[in-house]
Simulated scan of single mutants.
Amino acid sequence: MRSANPNGRASEGGGMALLTQEHRSAIGRELPPVTAEVTRREIRKYAAATGQRLQKFIEGDEAPPMFLFGLFTPILPRERLGHDGLPPDSGLVPELPLKRVMAGGSEQSWFRGIHAGDVLVSQHTLLDLFEKEGTRGPLIFVVVENRVETEAGEPVMTESSTWIAR
């Protein structure tokens, strides 16, 4: 049995919709852009810490792709981190009625390398929130996009991540 949720998506089993109009109104919300300068020293430290073997990484000319994901993470004192070691919630995703969140996958598109001297801008957007009925109950899917560009607007990388709340 399928029924339509107020968000326009079908809900398996006809269960009650968990997402409210307030949740749906958050779709399209963006966090303020975050800017970071890439330095040769940071690239070299990252390359050493992760055992990189390519000379361009070891010398700090170009950053390994995963370097990007720590670049925009704020450095906070331990007491400001959550029990899981992560920074506080950004406020991008509204509080969900289901609390257990797990990774649902991500897709990345790379447009250019990351080089010493680049000034990069990261912009997170809430792309979608929707429900599905899983084999063990309701699920809420959260889709977030992270766009990284140079300060001049040249695309570097786009990542679409899905989180699943149950």
Rank of each mutant, 00 (worst) to 15 (best):
L18I: 12
G15I: 08
D118L: 14
A26W: 00
T50C: 12
G91Q: 05
F72A: 10
V38T: 11
S25M: 07
A10C: 08
E145G: 08
E159I: 15
W163H: 10
P88G: 09
T150Q: 05
G51Q: 08
E95A: 14
S90V: 02
L18M: 12
E159G: 02
P77Y: 00
Q52H: 06
L71H: 01
E30W: 05
E149Q: 15
S90T: 15
T50Y: 10
A103V: 07
G85R: 04
E159W: 00
M157N: 08
Q21R: 14
R100V: 15
S122V: 13
A103H: 15
L31M: 13
L76K: 02
V101Q: 05
F111S: 13
L126T: 12
A26S: 11
I164M: 07
L71E: 04
E62M: 14
K132S: 13
E30C: 15
T20Q: 09
L98E: 05
S161N: 09
P65N: 02
L127S: 06
S109I: 11
I27E: 11
A165N: 01
E131N: 03
L81E: 04
G104R: 08
L81I: 07
G13C: 07
S25P: 02
S161Y: 00
M157R: 13
R9G: 01
L19E: 04
R44P: 07
T50A: 11
